[in-house]
Amino acid sequence: MSDLALQVGQTASPEATLFWILAPLTFLAALGMLLVKKAVHSAILMAFVMVALAIFYIAQGAPFLGIVQIVVYTGAVMMLFLFILMLVGVDSSDSLTETIRGLRPIAIMAALGFGGLMVSLLARATLGRTAVGVEAANADGNVQGIAQLLFSTFVWPFEVVSALLITAALGAMVLAHHHRIQERPTQRQLSIERFRGESLANAAGLPAPGVFARHNAVDVPALLPDGTASVASVNASLKARGDVLDPSQFELSSIDTRVEEEK
């Protein structure tokens, strides 16, 4: 029988122990990535999967790839993901309602079909010759072996990949470049606009937010002389986010002002 089987040590070898502990955890983390609602939690689980894969690479005689996996994936790529998550909004969670009807059952059925096909295929696959470990190829050292291949057989793909990296970096810069649609107004223009505008109501600037004895942050509007809240005194983006507090909760009448008698 010359199937894909490559016996690595006995059933209770260290690698088997490593695999049977780490592989279920990796599988669960990947599954969790699919099921958790928040994108940040997905990112954390993804980082775990990547570190686990790095450990698998090192266990399989690919220490160079293992280190590269940690440096490039968990170091650079995951940080990039988290950075973009922070930019887009950490608490942006997916609504898990389906927009295309029947998509989820179909996806799960297709996944079961595909996964079953792959697993049964792997179980039946044969190599056609006896499997050997990577120890002989790693005899001169893993890094040396990879370098030898990279700079002889694969030197042309290696150069193409470097061009690809530069192109990707340039592309990202072009995409991230941001043109202002309008010129930024200068202080002089703003001043002219204020005094030559339709009314002089805001000539001295907009009113400041409320200052109360118990709260003086920018999220509480100031009170007008008649007791109503001044809409112009809080930032428009705070209003749009719904982060404006109601000033009536800081009124004197709502506070217990009785002084307790000393006993």
């Binding site: 894909l4 690595v8 990535m33 997905s42 997916d94 998509l103 297709a110 996944a111 697993v119």
Partner: peptide, 29 residues
């Protein structure tokens, strides 16, 4: 232990990733 076990794990991870691409809607996920 059989080294082909890694291949089974790889197939499962690939399947999970494929389902995620189809089912999830947050572009980052």
């Amino acid at each position: 232990m059989n080294a082909a076990n890694y291949l089974y794990l790889s197939a499962l991870l690939f399947t999970i990733g494929a389902v995620g691409v189809v089912v999830r809607r947050n572009a980052i996920v």
